[in-house]
Amino acid sequence: MHPKAFEFEQGDSPLLISMPHVGQALSDEVAQKLTPNAALLPDTDWHLPTLYRDVKSLKPSMIIANYSRYVVDLNRPADDQPLYQGNTTGLFPQTLFTGEPLFHSPISDEQHEWAKNEIWQPYHQQIKDELARLKAKYGYALLFDAHSIRSQIPFLFEGKLPDLNFGTNQGHSGDPRLVEALLPVCQSNAYSWVVNGRFKGGHITRHFGQPEQQIHALQLEMAQHVYMQEQWPFSYLPDKAAQIQPVIFALLRTYVERAAQIFT
């Protein structure tokens, strides 16, 4: 029996947190065809639900994917149009972030169709429905798309990523005042940060962020070295995590509080 596409918990605030790349479940066909390196699931956004556990006191709604991005990438558009120039991965990835092949034989069209209909579509429908509910209740809705990635991946980008990488689709996915409010939080600690650098927001941020409709979206891509071991076995590092968790909490609290000041 296949697991459900995602876990969803409805909150009591205007905020919806999405975690589309934390899933580790595999369909039978994908599991059978992964290369040995790919079977380790190295491109997973490891441990984010644990890292974000303290933000539950803000009472957000949360949607957390169950399936690996190797089955279907929930942060890519259904038509699989590329979001970034240069090397990237698509709706149905064929390579690891290193550029190595994911599979030792091709995945069937039937598998892809199943993944799109049973995983991708329900996840996006739940986001759409929850944002509509939040807007109806509060007059506006806030989406925060949470991600993490290894800090150095030459196949995808040069050099080393900043610790905190905010994406707003070049300012089009939300009111610029919301991001401006986060900058003092970033400046008050030792973590490096950038807005709309290599990561400008994936499909979820770009598609659902509609500030003219009072739906505002922000992506945070976090360098994994700030809270975990970036290589196998991808261990969670509690001492490091404890240092970044108050920053995450402050960012999300500020996001919510500034929105309330602006929109109510």
Rank of each mutant, 00 (worst) to 15 (best):
E257H: 08
H207W: 09
N196F: 00
H147F: 08
F166W: 06
L16R: 03
W120T: 14
L252Y: 14
V55T: 10
R150D: 12
R53T: 11
L161H: 05
N87G: 02
S151H: 15
Q214W: 03
L143N: 00
P106E: 06
Y191G: 13
L131E: 08
R133M: 09
R53G: 01
I215W: 00
H207Y: 14
Q170I: 04
K200I: 07
T44N: 13
Y236E: 12
A31Y: 06
E257I: 04
F166S: 01
P20K: 11
A31P: 14
H104Q: 08
F155W: 15
H172M: 04
Y191L: 15
V179H: 13
D12T: 11
E212P: 02
F155L: 07
F157H: 07
P246M: 05
K33Q: 13
E230N: 03
I149S: 07
W232V: 00
G23Q: 10
D28G: 10
A260N: 12
G90L: 11
F208W: 13
L156H: 03
F157P: 07
P162Q: 13
P14V: 05
A132E: 08
D175V: 01
Y191V: 04
F92D: 05
N165R: 04
Q32C: 07
K4A: 08
P162K: 01
Q121C: 09
Q224A: 11
P42G: 07
R206Y: 00
I63Y: 02
E257T: 11
L40E: 13
G139E: 11
L131S: 09
S18Y: 09
Y52H: 14
E118G: 04
I262N: 07
I244V: 15
V55D: 09
N196W: 00
Q210M: 10
I63W: 01
G23A: 12
T205Q: 03
E118T: 15
L161M: 11
L83N: 06
L41I: 10
I127G: 02
L15Y: 06
Q245V: 06
T89W: 05
Q94M: 09
P246S: 09
Y67E: 03
P42Q: 13
H21D: 13
G86T: 05
E257A: 11
Q187C: 05
Q94I: 03
A132R: 13
V195H: 08
H207S: 12
Q94G: 12
S27C: 10
V179I: 14
K135M: 10
W120N: 05
G201T: 14
K160Y: 02
D12N: 15
L220N: 09
M1W: 10
P14G: 05
V179Y: 14
A78D: 09
A31N: 12
L16P: 02
D54M: 02
D145C: 01
I119N: 04
N66T: 10
Q243T: 01
I248C: 04
A132Y: 01
F199I: 14
V194L: 01
V71E: 04
P154V: 11
I153S: 04
Q152F: 12
Q10V: 00
K33Y: 02
L96K: 06
M19L: 11
L96M: 14
Q243G: 02
G167V: 12
V247A: 04
Q245G: 11
D43I: 07
D239G: 03
Y140E: 02
Y52R: 13
R150K: 15
